[in-house]
Design a protein around this nucleic acid. Sequence first.
RNA 1: AGGCCCGUAGCUCAGUUGGUUAGAGCGCUACCUUGACACGGUAGAGGUCUGGGGUUCGAGUCCCCACGGGCCUACCA
Length: 913
Amino acid sequence: MFESGRARTCPRMGEVHRMAREIAKAYEPQQIEPRWADFWVKEELFKADANAPGPVFSIVIPPPNVTGSLHIGHMLDHTEIDILTRWHRMRGYNTLYLPGTDHASISTQRVVVKQLADQGINYRDLGREEFLKRVWKWKEESGGIITRQMRQIGESCDWSREKFTLSPELSAVVTEVFVRLHEEGLIYRENRLLNWCPVCLTVLSDLEVLHEERQGHLWHIKYPVVGTSEFLVVATTRPETMLGDTAVAVNPGDERYAHLVGKKALLPLMKREIPIIADAMVDREFGTGAVKITPAHDPNDFEVGRRHKLAEIDVMTDDGKMNAAAGAYAGMDRFEARKRIVEDLKALGLLEKITEHTNAIGLCERSKTIVEPRTSTQWFCRMKPLAEPAIAAVERGEIQIIPDNRREEYFNWMRNIRDWTLSRQLWWGHRIPAWHCGDCKEIIVAREAPAKCTKCGSGKLEQDPDVLDTWFSSGLWPFSTLGWPAETPDFKTYYPTSLLITGYEILFFWVARMIMLGMHFTGKVPFRTVYLHSIVRTPNGEKMSKSKGTGIDPIDVNRRYGTDAMRFTLAVTASVSDVIWTEDRIQSSRNFANKIWNAARFLFVNLEKFEQAGGKIEDVALPEVRDKAPYLSGDEIDLVDLWIFSRLGKAIVQNNETLASYRFQEAAQSVYHFFWGDFCDWYIEWVKPRLLDTDLSRATATWRNLFAVFERALRLLHPFMPFLTEELWQKLPQRVGIRSIALDSFPEARANRIDPIAERKFSLLQYVITVVRTMRTETPVDPKKKIAAELSSQDTAVRELIKQNLETIQRLAILSSLQVTHEGLTGDGIFRSTAEFELRIPFGEVVNPQAEIARLNKEIEGLQKAVTSKEKQLANETFRSRAPEKIIKGLEATLVEQRIELQKLKDRLDQLE
RNA sequence: AGGCCCGUAGCUCAGUUGGUUAGAGCGCUACCUUGACACGGUAGAGGUCUGGGGUUCGAGUCCCCACGGGCCUACCA
């Protein structure tokens, strides 16, 4: 662990005075964040050392699009990553958080294409080289935005290791992997029917196609049967594709159409004779039981076409218009053509009817255009052999997927995996390392451009024009960024990475492929745990969308409320199910930050007074007791001190347990309650007078504990709120020669002795105070009036405890006196009794004694219910015979107490009435 | 079509081996401008956990069904 190093000399008194004066009344994140963000980067605090000792914690960023800016999804990813990274680093791990960006082939190209279009330029006219120049220029201009934002929000990454998927070094890895897969026979080229985006002008993989249910129609079209007067009626959702029909198919067992099989139909509008064939693919129940076959525009028809050796007539251009094969409709947009064709059929009397029909249509993930199935020759990767070990690794638990149900999704998809379409008709990306011979048509896949054809020796070689799917390079990310294929120190130390945190929406796109490729090429899993978080949604429950303007800009929110507040909000919101963004939450986190700030302010302001009264900071700030148990000894320790250290210890334990299982919400909640509920509400209030005690040694001891707790609390809070805690930690007098709280050690639970006895004792005192306060407001009593009260307890220890803390109890409960006795309380007044003590406030102190009767009645009613239900349960023989002893005993004990209490209340009511 | 998730206080959400009186934040009510903090303090109201059935001594928690909402996968024209 971190040694304290040599202690710095404590700041002189003047410095503390200055601090106190300098600390603003309210938490102003804008004033403090830029300073520390800058400091962390400049000082290279988070630079990892592959040779450093200790257990390793390494994590690679899910690389955001290089030309994008931070959105709320990144903010969530990055917050969770950074919390865990800082937490591990403080606990002495050799920690690496590796940043980087993705070239995002298709989306970046789209952005630049659109920019050019806005200037009236068609990117295709520019030519490949010029276009790429423009993209690189755009990348240089805007590529820094997101990483600058990451620095701005203080992510603790190692910027010296920043990576980019399209950099020369990572491109070399892409080539290496492609060539090896090809050598292994896992990459091949084939002509197939694939999803084509008429806007992006490229094929898409299955994953890049979104499915959406839409209300559509089923058009019933009459195809004349050649040589008869009969019509064969087909039902279709896409009449425009009929221009490319090369057959009509019916089910082989369908007796309605049996006599037509083998005959020909006359394709309306095109006047082409096409065969009527039988194929089992046809569902007799659906539509008319007769299907028009368009092999070039429908996946099923394509299969049928290949089975029956039918012609594949593509009737469209690559941008979704009808082509020359569409006859009279050539040049029309495909949907315009649909309308016209339907009209023309109607005019010809060939449209039998139109029915309503909902079907799932495919949309391009990027452009949201309806994809067009078309045939083309593409590069594919065989996935089955890659998937098998990847499935096994998760089955064996070598990779843990959290939450569990995503594991099932993973298995489902992986077990039914299909080959991956690798090539894209785009320019921005990793160009496929394959060369086509102009003479013999040989295709050569190689690491370097070959000088001549390996088959015929021709020099007429041209590189394949296509680029790789953008997810191909991101699939290599965990090892390509660490120096693979070389056995670099980084690779040896940090691979496999410890953890991957990302949104569940890219489980298949990215996570599954990293597992497959990582295992295939390194022989090891790329990460041991995958934590898939939820999506942040709008208040209406929708996905936040930039184009719809429904997203929030995290940077803007950070500016208004503070990055720490944002981080805390996301942590406290983090959940397995999706989360709805509401502004309330961040206000509450901001309030929490302000609370921390003001607790510090209280400390600093009063420390100044303490000094003025002759106190010495040197005696308060003792670096050597920071994390040691006992932190302080002897009579300096009061019950309240034992209590707060115990609470702190518990908060630390809880934090560590919950963060270890990615329960960010519970972790954040526990530090919140410790700091606000225990430290501010009780501890500070409790020790306030002692801080300026005229007995200087007593005041000094109080300060010592107060600072010890506060300083540890800051370290506990640091992973959640790095800026605020750094700012305050740097102001503390007990600095220990470490440059940043981020490099300091995480507080140890051990050092804050968890002390159940102290907790029980202190909670009794809290209870006394709370009960008096409640009595006061319910009764009611003038809130500022100090009143006299009496307390009785049969327990000597309880009485002693209360007597020892009498002054504080009186102060916090606003009492002029509290008589403590072992005798039963008599006389008039308001009474409250608990298991351990009884309290009385005489009517003389009370504004409205009559209110007590109503209150008593209500309480008796409630208690009577509880007693009756317990009696009933205990009278149940089966319960008695089957429930565990512990439960029965507990119930009996409670019943006894409640009966006594009930009797007391009744007696009291009698007295009053 | 198959699979998954969710339905808990007015709102947004916790609730990990089923156990006695179900929690938080915001909002709400009353009081308090107290020398850290009104981005605050003190006290409080408010849910029987979507509905129905089942297992169990005991269910928010396990099982089945229904209703409502969301998501993923899928080549039914």
